[in-house]
């Protein structure tokens, strides 16, 4: 996932953040638990959404990665905002359009950006 300034690469139990201007990794994080099977980025708020599925619950977690939050590369007047909004809505719809009888549990885990 990218916001144009940074790229998040999620591989196995780790995720890596790269500066797209230089290509150099600027952050590396290890997932605390089992890795989210699906992740989306809401470009408008620079908030990530991780989705976990198991037999009875579907858990949505939202979290912030400081490098992304600080490097929002929205270009006004280009239509990018609408594109991004659509992007998130479509991604979300693909996974949630058919509601199941499963219990949906929404957990909010917002990690505050370091000052």
């Amino acid at each position: 996932m990218t916001n144009g300034a940074h790229l998040l690469v999620s591989v196995r139990d780790k995720c890596h953040v790269f500066d797209l201007a230089t290509g150099i990794r600027v952050a590396k994080m290890k997932y605390e638990e089992s890795r989210d099977t699906v992740m989306f980025l809401d470009h408008q708020s620079n908030t990530f959404f991780g989705i976990k599925n198991n037999d009875k619950t579907r858990i949505v977690q939202d979290f912030i990665i400081p490098a992304f939050k600080q490097s929002a590369a929205i270009k006004e007047g280009t239509g990018q905002v609408q594109n991004l909004s659509d992007h998130f809505r479509a991604a979300y719809a693909l996974h949630f359009e058919s509601p199941s009888k499963q219990t949906n549990v929404i957990e909010r885990i917002i990690r505050k950006s370091k000052p």
Partner: peptide
């Protein structure tokens, strides 16, 4: 990372990913 304009799909830039400032590849 190959970047193309979403307007005309021309190549904008390509960025190689490195894991550190010594430019060791990722």
């Amino acid at each position: 990372v190959e970047c193309y304009s979403a307007a005309d799909f021309k190549h904008v830039k390509s960025t190689t990913l490195f894991k550190n400032e010594s430019l060791d590849i990722f």
